[in-house]
Design a protein around this nucleic acid. Structure first.
Length: 416
RNA sequence: GGAGGGGUGGCAGAGCGGUCAAAUGCAGCGGACUGUAAAUCCGCCGACUUCGGUCUACGUAGGUUCGAAUCCUACCCCCUCCA
């Protein structure tokens, strides 16, 4: 079970970069991986039309897999999303319609094309499959006889996903109880169809994955393997992936490249090394150097992290732009054309309205409070008048002025 | 089917006729200190407001009362035990 003397390049790399939490039969898997190229998959829910950084560990894992010549399979949970995974959830999720699921799948696909090569130009192109393709047409009796008989209720009750619900006195519907069976079946089906022998996923998926491995053995599939990634938390213990504005999405429409860059730039000191290993492809030697920076110097490492992570997600150009904008705004205190801009068409426009409209505040009450507390600045001068209107004299002859909330949220105002 | 317990703000969890826009903790936001970090301290944290107030909220719908998150009735949902 040791991770120290791995032979395969893939496992060696992901191990030293901190991707491995648990793994079944790691030695056999290592042997297989060093002998031949395999196919491996990770399943993704279609509960939203984009993915956020919470899934980024999995995405990077598939990327590494492809880099080492193996074939990454992205399994879209078009079928299982209709069920809802109870793992890690206190309450049953709302069920989604087929149309909603389809729309979400399209959005997620877009995110993946940035990390995985799906084109035929290489010998191991990745591909996406939708488990609705086989789950939708399953026959109940058939499933029970072929698959259901291999599952022990006694055993299922011991899995965390189920146990927690029971212990916390939260309802667990039969529908959700079946999720594990379907996910296990997915694995066997993927093995049959594409010779897929490895399922990866987050540590919360361990139970589901192990079930799949078991089911494979019982149903006479090839030997299957499972590998999970650790749950990534920040050094202060919070689940990573939240910012002022909510989840950190991976598509531009949901979160701009600039905000994405900012998210990484604001990493806690103690996380920089960990994040560089997981979310960039920089060589380990370079990461070690960056990691050893101390005090204010570690900000340089954070910039590298932000640039590399943004480059992967939004491209090099967007990453450079974000970096330049940030330098202008934070280090030089200037304004920058790349900030979100609001064009003022009216002679005088209420400050509170602008704050809400530009999503700097959720309500006018909040905006008012913010002004009273000195959190709103116009060209770095704090405002204290809640009835203020922006008029042309505020521009002081300039084309644009900068409106800020707190230290990190900035917006440009422009005369219309 | 029977008996009991319960549904309160993003979450957890008090309140059990007026002093309740609802204690406390967590999360979040602003300020101070800094390095766009962490920790710490201070302030805020339903909506609207001409800052006097107004409105909407304690599962849903009615009722009692001058007054209800708090009492009554019905319904919905959840939990536990029994069958």
């Amino acid at each position: 079970m040791s991770e120290d003397n791995l032979k395969s390049e893939f496992l060696k790399t992901i191990s030293e970069r901190g991707f491995i939490h648990q793994c079944t039969a790691i030695e056999e898997l290592d042997t297989q991986l060093s002998k031949e190229k395999i196919s491996a998959y990770i399943g993704f829910d279609c509960t939203a039309d984009s993915l956020h950084v919470g899934s980024l560990v999995s995405i990077m894992l598939l990327r590494w897999l492809q880099k080492f010549g193996h074939t990454p399979i992205v399994l879209m949970g078009g079928g299982t999303t209709k069920i809802g995974d109870p793992s890690g959830k206190d309450e049953a999720r709302q069920l989604l319609s087929s149309e909603g699921i389809h729309k979400n799948m399209m959005g997620i696909r877009e995110v993946f094309t940035k990390y995985i090569d799906f084109t035929d130009n290489i010998k191991n192109p990745g591909f996406m499959v939708n488990n609705a393709d086989w789950l939708d047409t399953l026959n109940y009796i058939g499933l029970l006889r072929d698959v259901g008989r291999h599952f022990s209720i006694n055993r299922m009750l011991t899995f965390d996903s189920v146990k927690l619900r029971l212990e916390r006195e939260q309802n667990l519907s039969f529908l959700e109880f079946n999720y594990m069976i379907l996910q296990s079946y997915d694995f066997v089906e993927l093995n049959k169809r594409f010779d897929c022998t490895l399922q990866m996923g987050g540590s919360d998926q361990w139970g589901n994955i192990v079930s799949g491995v078991d089911l494979g053995r019982k149903m006479g599939a090839d030997q299957l393997f499972g590998l999970t990634t650790p749950l990534i938390t920040t050094a202060s213990g919070a689940k990573m992936g939240k910012t002022a504005n909510g989840a950190v999405w991976l598509n531009e429409a949901r979160l701009s490249a600039y905000d994405y860059w900012q998210f990484w730039r604001n990493t806690e000191d103690n996380d920089v090394g960990k994040f560089l290993k997981l979310f960039t492809e920089l060589p380990m030697s370079e990461i070690a150097k960056l990691e050893s920076l101390e005090g204010a110097e570690i900000n340089e490492a954070k910039k590298v992290l932000a640039f590399e992570a943004t480059k992967l997600c939004h491209g090099e150009e967007a990453a450079l732009n974000a970096q330049k904008t940030a330098e202008n705004v934070f280090e030089k205190g200037n304004t920058d054309q790349d900030l979100p801009t609001k064009i003022l068409n009216k002679e005088a426009q209420s400050l509170l309205d602008i704050l809400v409209e530009m999503e700097l505040c959720k309500s006018k009450g909040e905006a008012r409070r913010l002004v009273q507390q000195g959190g709103v600045k116009l060209d770095d001068k704090a405002l204290d008048d809640t009835t203020k209107e922006i008029v042309s004299s505020d521009f002081d002859g300039k084309e644009t002025i900068k409106l800020s909330v707190g230290k990190k949220k900035h917006v440009l105002l422009k005369k219309g």
